[in-house]
């Protein structure tokens, strides 16, 4: 579904942000992307979505090379949940925000509305439908942001810190929602407990390089590996609870 083949990237006249990163994510796989601040997680997401140009190496999404002319196709395949829901939700109401993508992709009002209703029901958010974006809580906004992406029916979903700044209850709601999705998932986060709950595989980045790629259970229990890369064991495995 997603292939990174020896991808390197650096911003103009800056130090390299990614160096020779290669991995492949199979359809339906749930992969956690972890690493310290500045490790290159967001850059990988942006390269995948074509928000940054891939200058070295090759990125394939569903067999299509990510380049300027294929961006509409790539972006139809991938849904991206931004870290800051306020930056994602720009229409006045949840309903209008959810209608935005389906209508842009040519669906009639009735078809788009059916999709919106189905996604809201799936996530248990029906009561949010006509609420104003600025009047819903942070947790509701995060769920609504996920709903706006699911309404696109992407083949794969990318999430940047989906559990950040959420209370335990809302965090659990988001985790349940993620686990309920059947599509390919790539989740960048520092919340290793959440990664453990939602992902079967983990990619560990450090200094722009992929230093570990393996099962979540294996990597997230490796204290030495995590600490060597400025991370620590997930709280649930730390023996402190």
């Amino acid at each position: 579904m997603i292939t990174f083949d020896n991808v390197s990237f650096s911003y103009e006249s800056g130090a390299p942000v990614l160096r020779g990163v290669s991995f492949h994510i199979a359809p339906g796989e749930a992969v956690g992307l972890i690493g310290a601040n500045g490790a290159g997680k967001s850059t990988i997401m942006k390269l995948l979505l074509g928000l940054l140009p891939c200058t070295e190496g090759e990125i394939l999404v569903d067999g299509v090379r990510v380049e300027k002319k294929t961006l509409p196709q790539i972006r139809r395949t991938l849904g991206f949940v931004l870290q800051d829901s306020d930056s994602q939700m720009f229409m006045p109401t949840v309903y209008e925000d959810m209608m935005f993508a389906p209508r842009n992709y040519g669906l009639s009002k009735e078809e788009a509305e059916q999709k919106v209703d189905a996604v809201l029901a799936q996530l248990g958010l029906t009561e949010l439908k006509h609420r104003h974006n600025h009047k819903i809580s942070g947790g509701e906004k995060r769920m609504a942001a996920i709903a706006t992406i699911l309404a696109m029916e992407p083949k794969a979903i990318l999430m940047d810190e989906p559990s950040i700044a959420l209370d335990p209850c809302n965090r659990r709601t988001v985790i349940n929602a993620i686990n309920g999705m059947r599509m390919t998932k790539l989740i960048a986060s520092h919340d290793l407990d959440m990664i453990l709950d939602t992902c079967s595989r983990v990619l560990l980045l450090s200094g722009g390089q992929l230093v570990a790629d393996g099962s979540a259970d294996e990597i997230l229990r490796d204290k030495a590996l995590l600490e060597a890369n400025r991370m620590e064991l997930p709280f649930c495995l730390s023996g402190r609870h």
Binding site: P72, L78, Q88, F90, M99, F100
Partner: peptide, 23 residues
């Protein structure tokens, strides 16, 4: 920065420069 984030979010959801206006 915020405007850029919003614009990227729109682009990633199929925005091609022509807004879909209300019925």
């Amino acid at each position: 920065d915020r405007a850029e984030d919003l614009y990227e979010s729109m682009q990633l959801r199929g925005f091609r420069g022509e807004f879909y206006y209300a019925e």
